[in-house]
Amino acid sequence: MKITYNPRYNIAYICLQEKTTQVETIQVSEEMNVDVAPDGSIYGIELLNANRQLAADRQGKLIVVNEALGESTEIKLAL
C-alpha cells in the first residue's frame, strides 16, 4: 500500500495495489473516488480535500501508524 499526497491540490491517493488492468473510477461522494477493477477489486481511493478527509490535527499533520511494528510517521499537510 502507498499513500501519496499533493499539497498543491490537497488530494491524497491511497494505492492498495498497482493497476494491472483497466479500472473504473466510481464517485462515492463529492470528496471521494474509488478505482475498481472489473472483478470488484479495489485498486485505490482518491481523497479530495485530503487534509480534512484524513483528519489532520490542528498542527496540519497526518500520523500514519504501523501497529504491527510499533512505528509511526508524521506527514505535514497543507491547511
Rank of each mutant, 00 (worst) to 15 (best):
M1K: 09
I3A: 09
I3Y: 08
T4G: 13
T4K: 10
T4S: 15
Y5H: 01
Y5W: 04
P7M: 05
P7T: 00
P7N: 07
R8C: 08
I11N: 09
I11K: 07
I11E: 12
Y13K: 10
Y13W: 10
L16I: 13
L16P: 01
E18I: 07
K19Q: 12
K19S: 13
T20P: 01
Q22S: 08
V23Y: 09
E24A: 02
E24N: 01
T25N: 06
I26Y: 07
I26M: 06
Q27N: 03
Q27P: 06
S29W: 01
S29F: 05
S29K: 05
E30L: 01
M32F: 01
M32L: 11
N33Y: 08
V34E: 06
D35W: 03
A37H: 04
A37L: 09
P38N: 10
D39T: 02
G40H: 03
I42Q: 04
G44N: 02
L47W: 02
L47K: 04
N49H: 11
A50S: 11
N51V: 05
N51T: 13
N51H: 12
Q53V: 05
Q53A: 14
L54W: 01
A55W: 06
A56Q: 08
A56K: 11
A56T: 09
R58D: 12
R58E: 14
R58I: 07
K61T: 12
L62W: 10
I63G: 05
N66E: 15
N66V: 08
A68L: 15
L69S: 14
L69M: 14
E71F: 12
T73P: 00
T73V: 10
A78E: 12
A78Y: 10
A78N: 13
A78M: 11
A78D: 13
